[in-house]
Nucleic acid binder design. Structure first.
Length: 306
RNA sequence: GCCGAGGUAGCUCAGUCGGUAGAGCAGGGGACUGAAAAUCCCCGUGUCGGCAGUUCGAUUCUGUCCCUCGGCA
């Protein structure tokens, strides 16, 4: 089987990936496929900065806004969706263009994950409740007894990874370390052209601040309020950056300015984490965000050269 | 001009009874295998406003100058 050509756009939040993707799609008869973990929620198009209706009309877009804010999709499940969608786009004779900001998802798509089965939700909830009760350090010690290699790798305060390692062991009888030593399950083989959008320019912080202002003007607060009404018990989709701050504003804890300030701060910290991830991604060609022509030339050369 | 209060990290400040200094915020770096917009880890040399004096030693005490902010003129 020959490798499936795809373009992958990566870069921190607010760098102009949406526009760059549309330009490439128009130039190469492509279709945009989302790999962002938050732009999947239909209740939150504004705060998650999904492509607008107008933008989506300019070329085919897939895997945006298709889930209610109460749902979750694991990285593995999401990778399977992307595989299916990329194949379908290809069958239609189009070039798949993967766009997003979630480094783990991109890795799951391109390199695969360990073939660990899905863990029953009830078991996961039990372990998480226990973690809340006894604290991560206690569970870390328990992990050290069954899987010392994982315990050594995972920080004693990292409740997410500690509970993950414990639930995998509890559900499968095998340690995470054991699973990770196994070959990853992968989808189709991809020939990926990786394009990074680099914002090292000084205007970036201002750009993020402007984006938040625009989201608020366009009704982000009302959007989050609506979603919160629809999911009164709290929903995973409402835990994202922007939502969390707006919810605190709606509860009266923060005034709008304080919420926006926090929102910006959290967005900047997130952008930094994204760059830490993407910087070490191999084989990325970096471009200025508006250098659409340069990106197109690269894609053209790589598609021709194979 | 006079009186008072200050000048210490990008910002707000603490502190050193004389032994060249540290918090918060901001900022930076990193990790990452099904919650990832998540979850964690690490990072502080700065003419302590300038100059002089006392002292073994001054950011700390003294003098003087400069600057800022009040108040009075």
């Amino acid at each position: 089987m020959t490798a499936l050509p795809v373009v992958c756009l990566l870069g921190a939040t607010g760098t102009g990936k949406t526009e760059a993707a549309i330009r490439l799609a128009q130039a190469f008869d492509g279709a945009v496929i989302n790999y962002d973990s938050r732009q999947i929620y239909r209740d939150l198009p504004l705060v998650t900065a999904q492509p607008t209706r107008e933008e989506q009309a300019r070329c085919p877009h897939h895997l945006y806004g298709f889930l209610p804010a109460g749902a979750r999709r694991s990285a593995g499940a999401y990778a399977r969706l992307v595989h299916a969608m990329a194949a379908r786009v290809r069958r239609q004779g189009r070039l798949p263009i993967l766009v997003g900001g979630t480094g783990l998802y991109l890795r799951a798509v391109l390199s695969g994950l360990a073939p660990i089965p899905d863990i029953p939700a009830a078991l996961r909830a039990d372990i998480q409740r226990e973690c809340d009760r006894v604290g991560p350090h206690t569970l870390h010690a328990r992990l050290a007894a069954v899987d010392p290699a994982s315990a050594a790798r995972i920080a004693p305060a990292d409740r997410q990874r500690i509970t993950r390692a414990l639930e995998v062991y509890a559900a499968t009888g095998r340690t995470l370390t054991d699973w990770h030593a196994q070959e990853a399950t992968t989808g189709p083989e991809y020939a990926a052209v990786k394009i990074g959008l680099d914002i090292s320019a000084h205007g970036y912080a201002q750009r993020l601040a402007g984006r938040i202002e625009a989201m608020v003007e366009q009704g982000a607060v009302a959007e989050v309020a609506r979603a919160a009404t629809r999911f009164p018990e709290g929903a995973w989709g409402l835990s994202g950056i922007g939502c969390a701050e707006i919810l605190r504003h709606l509860s009266g804890e923060l005034d709008l300015d304080a919420a926006k300030t926090l929102w910006l701060k959290n967005t900047k910290a997130y952008a930094k984490r994204q760059m830490t991830w993407f910087r070490k991604e191999s084989g990325v060609s970096w471009f200025a965000p508006d250098d659409h022509q340069g990106m197109a030339l690269l894609v053209q050369a790589r598609l021709a050269g194979g």
